[in-house]
Structure formats: structure tokens, C-alpha cells
Amino acid sequence: MGNGTELGRVRGLGSAREGAHHWWHQRVTAGSNLFLMLWLLISIARQPAYDFGALHAWLASAWVAIPMILLIVSVFYHFRLGLQVLIEDYVHGELRVGLMALLTFFTISTAGIAIFSILKIALAGVPA
């Protein structure tokens, strides 16, 4: 790697050091998603029953609620990065800026609802 042009060096400009940020985070969350989604698939398949009481009691356990919250964080961050690429590839101009903001709102609000729901079940204990 060189040091850029002389003018660039004088101005102190150069790489923002964030070039690989998106790419790397997508890979890191891909790795965590692999484990968390396999856990969810196996857990769901292994359920003895799928009625409200059984699923509610299942999600109330810390051993389920914690990986479930981690899954929401990892998967939602990953899909936020993926949908960003979709918008960047196919939408141009001002609409892109609007959609990017909308995507962030969508991700954070759905993650908020999901995490609140898990915590509500996990912290409220078994329903009477």
C-alpha cells in the first residue's frame, strides 16, 4: 500500500478505514446466524407440542430467551446489511436515501417488538 498522492498526504486525507466494514460485518453475522438459526430449527423440530402453553413455557426459559434475543440481534443486523445492498444496486437518486432511512426504521422497530415480546414472556414467568 502506498501513502496516496503528495497532495492527499498534505491534506491528511486517505482511507476512511471503513471500506471493509459492511463486508466484514456481513461475514461475522453470517457465522453467528449459522449457529443461531440451526439452534432455532432444531429447537422447533424438537418441540413436543405447538400449542400456546407449550411454546410460551418454552420461550420463558432463559436457555431459550437469551439465544432468541441474540438471534434477533444477529439476524436482523445481517438482513439490514443485505437489504441495503439490494437498495444500493437497484434504486438510485433521492429515493435511495429515503429507502435507506426507512430500512433502518423497519429493522429497529421490528427488532424492538421482537425483543420486547421475548422479554415480556421470559420475565413475566409462567401465566396463571
Partner: peptide
């Protein structure tokens, strides 16, 4: 990311 997210969040919220 779209259909799956909505269903997952809906499922969790309905359960809660």
C-alpha cells in the same frame, strides 16, 4: 428479510 421477519415478529408478539 421481509416475509420471514414479519412472520417471526408477529409470532413472537402474538405469543407475548
Amino acid at each position: 428479510a421481509t416475509v420471514g421477519t414479519i412472520l417471526l415478529v408477529w409470532w413472537l408478539a402474538a405469543l407475548a
